[in-house]
Design a protein around this nucleic acid. Structure first.
Length: 422
DNA sequence: TCTGGGGTCCTAGGACCC
DNA sequence: TCTGGGGTCCTAGGACCC
């Protein structure tokens, strides 16, 4: 058996933990650059606030309705997530952190010794008590069924946040009540295909043949999903793996038209990506930079990217920044209003196995101590206390950095804030 | 008219997830 | 004026190999 634990309205709930005056009030959290709504408290959902709604269209209405608005605060949500996952790990020998707000717990054999519904209730209470975050728990014999159970736990108020699929009858009842588009792995496109073929519920899908599903849902992926829904586990626990790509991309607060600002941005983005790279102990063999016009602008779109293969793989911010800036010089064009830029590191490998170029000098080992110092200073004192000069001064950065005007404090990670809270 | 079989690797693009 | 970011997996098709 698997349990899927999912935090309710996670970002909105995190905001509420440290600001009790928000209890009972509608809250929304915005995407980066204060673009659109990505998390809503129950009260906000009840008011009819839609997921993905652009903020600028609703700002006045939010004000009228007393909706509390926050910029996203990933320092806070990331740390709260870490705490929730630590707690969950005490309930299972095998925890799979699936996303920032959900995790699978392998409960194999637990059904012989525990009442699973009671066990789920215990999990709920503990997370609420220790981390202050409400969660729902779904339990089933496969990961897909646990997901489905969780969906029902969320939708049905009388479930008390727990749903268990542990018998054939429970499976049938659950799947009859789930629209096919809500199944994990069925996106917008496949939902349309299925509905067009008269398959509206998860239950109806399980009644189709393997051949039919294979044809309509594209081969192995569909068949796996079908078997999972029928109760045959095909998906195992995915243990944490090193990322194969690491990206840092951002929209600008205002459009950028000068090459200096563009270079500052990719310098900063490459530095951030390099930081993530070192955190997972990898080096990158290639770096891609891109920049493009605003997505919704009526002007002629312009998109250009450039990939640079590094002479030898590196995790040095200095080397990566140099390559990123060089790449950006081939992308900049006079008169273009750039809305977004980004850096993607690829061809990642472990940092112990760096292959040094035979004929060129490599700085990767030379820079290692410097990078360690940089990372520890920035971790301790907060972001970007020390940075590459070509990232620009704070004054200059304000000209293009993303909007983040409604951000709450970093309650759990910022040194000054932690002292205050204690 | 007839001209094999089996395999790997790479890339681009689609679909999906949160 | 103002519409997010970061991933994974799969497939198809081409190039190439013996």
């Amino acid at each position: 058996m698997y349990a899927l634990v999912d935090c309710n309205n996670f970002y909105a709930s995190c905001e509420r933990v440290f600001n009790p005056s928000l209890r009972g009030k509608p809250i929304v959290v915005l995407s980066n650059n204060d673009g659109c709504v990505i998390s809503r408290s129950q009260e906000a959902k009840d008011l009819g606030v839609k997921m993905g709604e652009p903020y600028f269209k609703q700002r006045e209405w939010f004000k009228e309705q007393g909706v509390q608005v926050f910029s996203s605060n990933y320092a806070l949500y990331g740390d709260m997530s870490r705490r929730v996952m630590m707690e969950l790990s005490t309930f299972t020998p095998e925890l799979e952190v699936y996303s920032i707000d959900e995790a699978f717990l392998n409960l194999k054999g637990f059904e012989k010794h525990y009442d699973l519904a009671a066990y789920a209730e215990q999990i709920r209470q503990r997370i609420k008590q220790c981390q202050g975050v409400p969660v729902c728990v779904g339990i089933g014999p496969t990961k897909t069924l646990a997901k489905a159970a969780n969906h029902l736990a969320k939708r049905h108020k009388d479930s008390q946040g727990v749903w268990v699929i542990d018998t054939e009858e429970a499976r049938e009842q659950a799947l009859r009540n789930i629209p096919v588009k809500e199944i994990w792995g069925i996106g917008r496109k496949k939902a349309v295909t299925l509905e067009g073929a008269g398959v509206e519920t998860a239950w109806k899908l399980t009644k189709r043949s393997v051949e039919w599903v294979s044809q309509y849902l594209g081969g192995v992926v569909g068949v796996r999903l079908l078997k999972e829904l029928r109760g045959h586990a095909c998906l195992q626990t995915v243990l944490p793996q090193e990322k194969k790509n690491i990206a840092f991309t951002r929209s600008f607060g205002k459009v950028v038209t000068c090459s200096d600002y563009l270079e500052q941005a990719v310098t900063l983005y490459a530095s951030k990506a390099a930081e993530k790279l070192r955190q997972q102990g990898s080096v990158a063999g290639a770096i891609t930079v891109f920049a493009h016009t605003q997505r919704y602008s009526l002007a002629e779109p312009y998109f250009k990217s450039s990939t640079i293969e590094l002479p030898s793989a590196t995790d040095s911010t200095l080397e990566l920044v140099k390559a990123a800036a060089a790449g950006m010089r081939g992308i900049f064009k006079e008169g273009i209003k750039f809305g977004k830029a980004g850096v993607i590191l690829s061809d990642l490998r472990p940092n112990q196995h760096v292959q040094i170029h035979l004929f060129q000098e490599s700085t990767v080992l030379e820079h290692r101590g410097l990078m360690q110092a940089l990372d520890s200073i920035n971790t301790f004192w907060g972001n970007d206390v020390v940075k590459v000069a070509s990232a620009g001064t704070n004054q200059q950065q304000r000209e293009w950095q993303m909007l983040n005007q409604l951000c709450s404090p970093r309650y759990t990670t910022h040194i000054g804030e932690v002292l205050m809270v204690r």
